[in-house]
């Protein structure tokens, strides 16, 4: 099963309303056979930009982040459910990526261009593109006749 993360923006509501909305969203996930791993509240904040949803313009919203596990086939259903929910200003579902240690390649990237691998590859590619030049086969480095 894949772990997903959902930043959820809810419209400004009273506390009991907010609780019922969260319970509803949780219920939708449970209905799909999912498990909620984590539910964080980031508080009620000003939005970075105005968001209009369901016929209203929102400038403030309560932010939540829900981490859950559901079968991938039900993601489409969840998206549709939250899109149609009037209290949800915006919701996105992102996959939680596993930590994979990446080796830093900066020391190779800041080398002078001639020593960089990608540049060397580019130069070779450019060489391949050149058309073959006509050879005089005179054994001379210059053209012996008048041009």
């Amino acid at each position: 099963m894949i772990t997903y993360e959902m930043p959820l923006l809810l419209r400004l509501m009273t506390r009991p309303e907010l609780v019922s909305t969260l319970k509803r969203t949780a219920g939708i996930i449970f209905d799909q056979g999912g498990i909620i791993r984590r539910l964080d509240s980031l508080g009620t904040k000003d939005l970075p930009y105005r968001i209009s949803s369901h016929g209203a313009v929102h400038r403030r919203a309560s932010q939540f982040i829900i981490e859950f596990v559901v079968p991938p086939s039900s993601i489409k259903i969840l998206k549709d459910e939250f899109e149609r929910d009037i209290d949800v200003v915006r919701s996105r579902i992102y996959k939680v990526e596993e930590l994979t240690p990446v080796e830093c390649t900066l020391h190779e990237e800041i080398l002078p261009p001639a020593y960089r691998k990608d540049v060397q590859e580019m130069v070779e590619l450019a060489k391949k593109k050149f058309k073959p030049k006509f050879k005089n086969n005179t054994g001379l480095s210059y053209y012996p006749f008048q041009k």
Binding site: P48, Y49, I51, Y94, V102
Partner: peptide, 25 residues
């Protein structure tokens, strides 16, 4: 002055934050 992988990741995460309404574009 980030390495290629990290720069790509930063750009990706910024895009995700902007889409989720957490960060302005």
């Amino acid at each position: 002055r980030l390495c290629k992988a990290q720069q790509e990741r930063v750009e990706k995460e910024i895009w995700k934050a902007q889409q989720a309404g957490l960060m302005g574009g």
